[in-house]
């Protein structure tokens, strides 16, 4: 069984960049770049099957300033191998274009069974790539998976649903987008994994390798066009206490609440 995981690299939410600065490469350090948390959930989904079904897992990164870093980490987690797609002309802000690039990656890759990816909360925030890719490939799919188990005909998958969880079955050749859940909690990298990752040769494919030009995968080809990107300013005066012993902090909070006539409780 061959599994492909498409991962995104993002600027960590732990760094102190705010708003639009996240999207400004000149403000970003290499150290700030991490695998999108839900991409890690997706890797975990694939690795569980690698263990139980003797599958190979190939991580592919198209979106990121330093994809190679994310891919080494993916291998350190246990992925069999990885492919970097790096080319300045590729425009990945439009989910339809990103889905198209993924289709071409899969075509060049050859035979595959399962495709995993994570929810795009922290990356494109488009929430559309998984569904678009599945539709383009004509693959049965399930989005926002929270748990899965192998059954004779393929997989039984539970996914996020308003008011609970929805359970469906999908065939063996399918696409699964994964959300943050206990089942998909990513494993840590192992010492052995880190060593393997260091030595791993990661091929890098360009747009030309995929037969893509600016006309079809560059910004000019996007049907979703960005008009503006601005910081959201919340007009709320936040009183944040970030110094002092815990007891002092609590006292400060209570004093301030009293001053503002906010009553805790009845």
């Amino acid at each position: 069984m061959k599994i492909i995981v498409f991962i995104d690299q993002i600027v960590s939410t732990q760094v102190k960049l705010q708003g639009v600065d996240y999207f400004d490469p000149s403000k970003v350090n290499e150290d700030d770049l991490v695998i999108n948390p839900t991409s890690k959930n997706a890797i975990e989904g694939a690795l569980k099957l690698k263990d139980s079904l003797e599958a190979t897992v190939t991580a592919v990164c198209v979106r990121g300033l330093k994809p190679i870093k994310a891919l080494r980490e993916a291998i350190a987690m246990g992925c069999t191998d990885a492919i970097e797609i790096a080319d300045e002309i590729l425009y990945t802000e439009d989910p339809l274009l990103l889905a198209k690039i993924y289709v071409d990656v899969l075509e060049k890759f050859g035979d595959f069974d399962l495709v995993f990816l994570g929810v795009e909360e922290q990356s494109t925030s488009s929430y559309a790539v998984g569904a678009m890719l599945a539709e383009k490939l004509g693959l049965p799919s399930v989005l926002y998976a929270e748990e899965m188990e192998t059954i004779d005909s393929g997989f039984q998958v539970g996914h996020v649903l308003e008011g609970g969880r929805n359970i469906v079955t999908i065939p063996k050749k399918a696409l699964i987008s994964v959300s943050d859940s206990q089942y998909f909690t990513p494993r840590y990298t192992s010492m052995r994994g880190i060593l393997t990752a260091k030595r791993a040769e990661i091929p890098s494919w360009t747009a030309a390798d995929l037969g893509l030009s600016t006309g079809v995968a560059g910004k000019e080809a996007a049907s979703l066009q960005q008009v503006s990107l601005t910081n959201i300013v919340i007009e709320r005066e936040s009183y944040i206490i970030n110094e002092g012993e815990p007891e002092e902090m609590v006292d400060k909070l209570l004093a301030k609440l009293k001053e503002d006539e906010v009553k805790l409780g009845a």
Binding site: Q225, S228, T230
Partner: peptide, 17 residues
């Protein structure tokens, strides 16, 4: 108008089509 990146920024887009 779509909030992005944990609602820190607002992206305004239009769709060609």
């Amino acid at each position: 108008h779509t909030p992005v990146r944990d609602d820190q920024a607002m992206k305004i887009t239009k769709i060609e089509g």
